[in-house]
């Protein structure tokens, strides 16, 4: 009897905490949508910022898209290649364990430290200036370990029987990877890449140090142009804006950023769940 009461009490407590999580977690999404929808207009989405907090955010939207696309262009192939090596070629020895340890270390690295490194190495040492290129490469350092991890997991779920069947047909290891393993792992890899892109598009500290001030009035024209981005724009307007219109713009930009972020993570989760269901059958 006493145990049964205890069980009830514990259950009650758990309901409270989980209720708290359910209420707290979506609150920001709801808040951004509620306040941001009013800010969205064609002029806001296609115009340029002027006098600090007025105008539109077109260069910031394009800047974020450029940064993330370029970052994916660097990070995804490298990450997938690393994952192929780690899961298909590497035997468990000192070299691969070291590589794995460093990958984990990079995954846990604070983004501001990556930003500092980008600032020193890319911006000053390689003389890339604060630019689209420097920002995108720095972001790809941040994205790399996540892509590696997700791709490795996706490759490891591909049944060993597929590999055996292909090798027994006289295929080489690389032919087997290219024709059988990767096609089967693609959904999982895409999930990982999309989640990494979601991280990259919301990242502020790295682009702050390497890409540009955030209020650029022009869409970057070359790889060396300073590039504004939505997170930097939101940060600047939110902390230093003074007018109602500025606040409104910060909400609008937050909504746009959130929509882009959610588009990536929703499609990532969708692909993953769809794929898991298919593997299950």
């Amino acid at each position: 009897m006493k145990e049964a009461q205890k069980e009830k009490a514990v259950r009650g407590l758990l309901y409270v905490t989980v209720g708290l999580s359910i209420v707290i977690l979506p609150i920001i999404v709801v808040w951004v949508i509620a306040n941001g929808v009013g800010a969205i207009s064609l002029g806001f989405l296609t115009g340029r910022p002027y006098r600090f907090e007025y105008g539109g955010i077109f260069p910031q939207i394009m800047g974020s898209i450029y940064l993330v696309s370029l970052c994916t262009l660097f990070g995804a192939p490298l990450g997938i290649a690393s994952a192929i090596y780690l899961s298909e070629y590497a035997s468990d020895n000192v070299v691969t364990r070291t590589v794995r340890f460093f990958t984990e270390t990079l995954a846990g690295m604070p983004s501001i430290v990556i930003g500092l490194f980008g600032l020193e190495f890319l911006v000053y040492y390689l003389k890339l200036k604060t630019s689209l290129l420097a920002g995108a490469i720095s972001l790809s350092f941040m994205m790399l370990p996540w892509t590696i991890r997700a791709s490795e997991e996706a490759i490891n779920v591909v049944p060993k029987e597929y590999r055996e069947a292909s090798l027994a047909m006289g295929a080489t290891k690389w032919q087997t990877i290219l024709r059988v393993v990767l096609p089967a792992a693609i959904p999982g890899i895409m999930t990982g890449v999309l989640l990494g892109m979601g991280k990259a598009i919301g990242e502020t500290a790295v682009v702050w140090l390497t890409a540009g001030s955030g209020l650029e009035a022009f869409v970057p024209r070359t790889l060396k142009s300073p590039t504004g981005s939505l997170p930097m724009y939101i940060y600047l307007i939110a902390t230093q804006g003074h007018t109602a219109e500025g606040l409104q713009n910060a909400f609008g930009a937050s909504l746009v950023l959130l929509v882009m972020f959610l588009a990536m993570s929703v499609s990532a989760l969708f692909i993953r769940n769809h794929y898991l269901r298919r593997l299950g059958s």
Partner: peptide, 19 residues
Amino acid sequence: IKSSVELIVGIPSVVIGFF
């Protein structure tokens, strides 16, 4: 709940700061 929690992992921190 799990899917919505997973969606929120990695929500842009600047938005949370703004809130």
